[in-house]
Every structure is written in C-alpha cells, then in structure tokens.
Design a protein around this nucleic acid. Structure first.
Lengths: 255, 255
DNA sequence: TAGGGGAACTTGTACAAACAAGCGAGCACC
DNA sequence: GGTGCTCGCTTGTTTGTACAAGTTCCCCTA
C-alpha cells in the first residue's frame, strides 16, 4: 500500500522528468493540484515536500513553486550500496573480496562500532570491467558471521545481508574528501601512486541506532562524482573544518 | 516571528546536544511532546521532522524515535560562502582576486548562465593563513557589474553582493570529485603538480531560478571534507531498475 | 510614464479528528 | 522453556479549517 502523497509525488516527478514542467517553470498551485488529484491540500503539500527534498523543486512563501532540475536523486540507498547505485544507472558492475580477517577492535572502533572484535574486509569493485572502487570496511562483531558467509564475489553486500539476516542499513554518516593513492590503492585500482582518489568514509547503523559498519571507500579520480542539490530553505548541506598544521581534525562540509 | 514548530525543534535540539537525550535513547512520544508544549500533534511532528532532516533523530512507524547524533548540521549559506562557513566555525580566513576579466560565453555557458557575456574570476582563499581553496568562478552577465565593484580582497562575496544589489543565492547544484592539481593549481595552492585536490563544481541560482554563477572550486587535500548524514526513508531495499539512464559524462552519485 | 497602493493569489503555520500500520511487551498455550 | 498471539502504544496518512505572511500584478494617481 503506497501512500497517496507518494503516488502524487511520483506522478509530478514523472511529469517533471518528462518535460511537462520545464526547468525554471512554475508548478501548479497547491489548490490546483489538490483539485486535480481530489486530495486535501495537506496531502499535496506532503507530495511536493518530497520533490523539494529531492531538490527537484524549490518553494518560498507567496510565490509558486519552481522547477529546479530534472534529475532525480536516489540518495540514501545509492550512497550505501555500490551495487544498487550501479544497477539503477544501468552499469555493469562486479566485486571481489581481496582480504578478510577478524581482529580486535582498536582506536575509536569500540566506541564507533560498539564491539570488541571486528571483521575487516578489503573489496575491489568494478564498473564496466574497470576497477574503480576500493572498499576497506570494518564490520561490528555481531554482523561478522553473516558477512563471512557471503561469497567472495558477492555483487551486493547490502542486499545479501538483508536477505540472510534481515539487516537494514538505516542511517549513515559520510565524510567525503580527496587523498593520494597509497601503494596498495595504486596496485589494486591500477593507478599511479599519489594520484588523486575520492574518498568516502562512512558509518552506518540499523533502525535502532546499532552500529553496523565503518568503511573507507576510495574511488578512482574521474570514475564517479557526488552530486548534491540544495536550497536555502531546506539545508542538507554545511561545511566543517579541521586544521592543516595539527592534522587533528579536518575541515568539514556537513551535507 | 519564529514559527512554533521551530521553537520546539530548537528546544529539543538543545536537549539532545546538552545530553538530556543521549545518543541511542528514545525521544518522548509525539503525544507527550504535544502535551508538554501545549501544541497539536501535527506541530510537534513538524518539529521532529526538522531534527530528522538534520540527521539528529531517526524514526520509524510503530517505534519511538531514537537519537542518532549530537552534532548539528548548519546552514545552507555556508556551502556557498567560504566566508560564512569559516566565520561560523571561528577560523581566520581571507581571499584575494588573482585575475578577473569579461569574455563572451562559450560552450554550455550560455545555456547554464543564460547570458552571452560572462565575468570570469580567479580567487584564492586562505584559512589560518594557508591557501586552501582556488575558486574559478564564472558570473552571469547581469551580476558582473556588481562583482567588479568588489575590492580584490573582499572577504565574503556572497554577503557583499547581498548588501549591494540584494542578491540571494537560493538554490545550488554541486558536483564533488577529486582531480590532480594542474600547474596553476599547484602554484597558487602551494602543492605539487598532480597532487590530489577536492573539487566542488557548483551552479547557483536566485529564488526565481535565475542563474547567477557557475564555479570550479578546488580544495587542498586534507584541508576540508564534506560531511553528509542521511537516513533511509520507509522503503528499505526497493529500487526501480533502470528507470533513469543518462548517457553522457561521468558516473554520478546523486545525494 | 513612473511610482505607490492595494487586491488576489499562493505558500506557510497551526489546530483538530480519525483511521491505518507497525512495534513491543506481556500473556496464554503447548 | 519456548512459541505464537493479542493488545496497547506510537508513528504514519489523510482530511478539513482557519489564519498568517509573502509575492505578483493590476490599477490608480501624481
């Protein structure tokens, strides 16, 4: 059972993507949409709120909503699952575990992952036959057995874990920056040492806030880019900082 | 006049940051909050929706909301304005125009910026005395005069343009990736050629969707990082297979 | 013609009510 | 002891109403 506002949002999104509402044009007013769909104004507002959150439309009090773009963001799942992102975009992709071992948690890991023993996995992901991503993932102890069950060439770890133990990656925090390729990075990704990599560090938790994994993913430069659309009203994005000299923290944009 | 739901959100956020609701704990139910604040349930829902959008709390049907984190994501303006971000975080910062010239629009610029003549500006930004950011910005013709009025060491272009012509950067689209430093990048940022830079390409528009600028900003590696906190909606692992397929260009994560 | 004043329109906020759907704990049963 | 089920709690969805606040555009006036 899909909610009514979602169906309305889907339909409006479809119209925008199809070009019925060109970029820069005005959307029908809430009252018009309510009449068209035979829904209450509140329901229509929920629908357009979805589109606004996706960055497709912008709105401000007093003026009609305007169309900002036509590309849809599928943000969360794609940010967590390489496979889901690649599949949604029609790319050929693959994966291969290079190394995997259990070890005691160290540093901030016990606090971040909430377990004393962790499972460390090194995976290479390919896109269109080319290695583009190196994943260094640390799993909390309680998911380790399920992860060890997976085949080495498992296409989608996220989906496999959902199927096997019903695990859902519900919340995540991501840090994106650029780093030079180390020796191992260079070898596995087929680039020169020191060449630029786009790094995404993430920590994910379940619905209950239970930590699942913490990962350091490195993309070959030129292979992928992150895209964000935002507005002054709805603020998904902000910046943070660290220190060049002390190297203790680093400057950070919060998205 | 601040909205009621915003005041409630502020108060709850304050309680979370202060530790009254530790990370992992449950928030009071909507009914309790409504009673406490003497507000309708809908109003309370709006308040907690704000916190959810900030990534502070997570929610799912049937269960109480839980606290996910204590760090607050700030304003949108900080993504567009280096100065506002740096100031809000208490950093010393500066800026200097290196080159500036008008030229005819080329390539996709007429379409992106909606003008035939543009103003190209090259700026270096410093943080704590160190050059960390190189901005190559192309302004639409209609803002060019106002930009040319600015002093070469203008601290905040965004604020200056707001003060002089009432310009508001309302919507933005950002593409984040990693690139090797070119000769000019290396010289101005004080790094070696080919070393990693974090690149943020952005296009900004006004409230009405009128294009203002298009920029290529490059950060020294290790100086800044982008941070995103997100959550899965209601739909766990459901994805539509290949409903969208954009041929051109590079692979993109859309956030 | 340029400018000010307003009226109509549009989105934002707030309240109230009702039902649907999912979660969790406690209870009964095997 | 463990399993399954029911019931109460909590969040999600939808409708309706009313007013507030900001925008847009037309018209009237100087």
């Amino acid at each position: 059972m899909v909610a009514r506002y979602e169906r309305i949002a889907d339909e409006l999104r479809g119209e925008i993507i199809a070009g019925a509402h060109p970029v820069g044009s005005q959307l029908p007013s809430e009252a018009e949409l309510a009449a068209r769909y035979g829904a209450a104004r509140g329901t229509v507002r929920q629908a357009v709120a979805v589109l606004a959150a996706e960055g497709l439309v912008g709105s401000r009090q007093g003026a009609r909503r305007i169309v900002l773009g036509r590309t849809r963001s599928q943000s969360f799942a794609e940010l967590h699952s390489f496979a889901q992102w690649a599949r949604a975009n029609g790319y050929r992709f693959g994966g291969q575990v290079i190394a995997q071992r259990r070890r005691p948690a160290g540093g901030t890991e016990p606090a971040r992952l909430g377990s004393e023993e962790v499972l460390e996995v090194l995976r290479v992901r390919t896109l269109e036959g080319e290695p583009v991503l190196l994943e260094r993932t640390v799993y909390a102890g309680w998911v380790a057995p399920a992860v060890e069950e997976l085949p080495a060439d498992c296409e989608s770890v996220t989906e496999a874990l959902h199927a096997s133990i019903g695990l859902v990656f519900a919340y995540g925090e991501h840090l994106i920056d650029a780093v030079p390729a180390g020796a191992q990075d260079a070898r596995l990704l087929g680039v020169r040492r020191g060449s630029p990599l786009l790094r995404q560090r993430r920590t994910t938790t379940t619905h209950e806030g239970r930590p699942v994994e913490s990962s350091d993913d490195r993309y070959r430069a030129g292979s992928v880019a992150f895209s964000i659309r935002n507005s002054i009203g709805a603020n998904p994005l902000v910046r943070h900082a660290g220190d060049l000299r002390f190297g203790a923290g680093e400057h950070m944009f919060e998205l």
